[in-house]
Structure formats: structure tokens, C-alpha cells
Simulated assay, not measured.
Amino acid sequence: MKKSITYAGINQTKKNPIYWSKLYGGQLVESGAYRNLCHTVTINILGFNYVDNDRYHNTFHLREDNTDSS
């Protein structure tokens, strides 16, 4: 079971994709090319295992790179 990340009473697990989308959405201009968007990086330092694996470092591109979990 995945844990939720709560800070100040707000479920950060659900808010991270919203923050990510705002980073991209803020760069969009009418008739602009998607290739001109800057890459975004989010780093979450947790005191518990959020992903059920033994790796210290996990990377996601809208889904986890190694296990295809969302």
C-alpha cells in the first residue's frame, strides 16, 4: 500500500502532478512549440518507502522508469 505524503494537512502525493503541470503550463505560449519547454525536476526527500522496491533512487516520467508503476 502506498503512503500519502501530507504536509500542513494537504495530501502532497496528489498535489505533486498539479505543481508539475503548472510548471509546464506557465511556459506555454500561443502557437509555441512544445520542444521549447524547459525540463522540470521534482525532488522529494521522504522518511519512508513510497515505492515498493529496494532501490534508493527512483525516477519517473509520468510513470516510474523501471517498474511501470504509476
Results as ranks from 00 to 15, higher is better:
residue 13 T to G: 04
residue 36 N to D: 15
residue 51 V to Q: 06
residue 50 Y to R: 04
residue 46 L to A: 09
residue 18 I to G: 00
residue 37 L to C: 12
residue 47 G to S: 08
residue 7 Y to L: 15
residue 15 K to M: 14
residue 39 H to A: 12
residue 70 S to H: 06
residue 48 F to K: 09
residue 57 H to F: 10
residue 5 I to Q: 11
residue 8 A to T: 11
residue 27 Q to C: 13
residue 4 S to L: 05
residue 56 Y to L: 07
residue 27 Q to F: 10
residue 66 N to Q: 12
residue 64 E to W: 00
residue 50 Y to C: 01
residue 21 S to H: 05
residue 62 L to Y: 08
residue 26 G to M: 09
residue 68 D to S: 06
residue 40 T to I: 15
residue 62 L to D: 07
residue 35 R to F: 06
residue 15 K to W: 01
residue 26 G to A: 08
residue 12 Q to P: 02
residue 6 T to Q: 12
residue 13 T to F: 05
residue 55 R to V: 02
residue 55 R to G: 01
residue 41 V to Q: 12
residue 49 N to D: 12
residue 4 S to Y: 08
residue 48 F to R: 06
residue 45 I to L: 15
residue 36 N to C: 11
residue 53 N to D: 11
residue 58 N to W: 05
residue 13 T to C: 06
residue 41 V to C: 09
residue 13 T to I: 04
residue 47 G to I: 03
residue 25 G to N: 13
residue 33 A to M: 05
residue 54 D to M: 05
residue 31 S to A: 14
residue 67 T to R: 01
residue 51 V to A: 02
residue 24 Y to N: 09
residue 33 A to Y: 10
residue 11 N to R: 05
residue 29 V to A: 15
residue 2 K to A: 07
residue 44 N to D: 13
residue 22 K to E: 14
residue 68 D to M: 02
residue 20 W to I: 07
residue 67 T to D: 11
residue 17 P to M: 00
residue 64 E to I: 02
residue 56 Y to P: 00
residue 8 A to S: 13
residue 22 K to D: 06
residue 11 N to A: 03
residue 21 S to M: 04
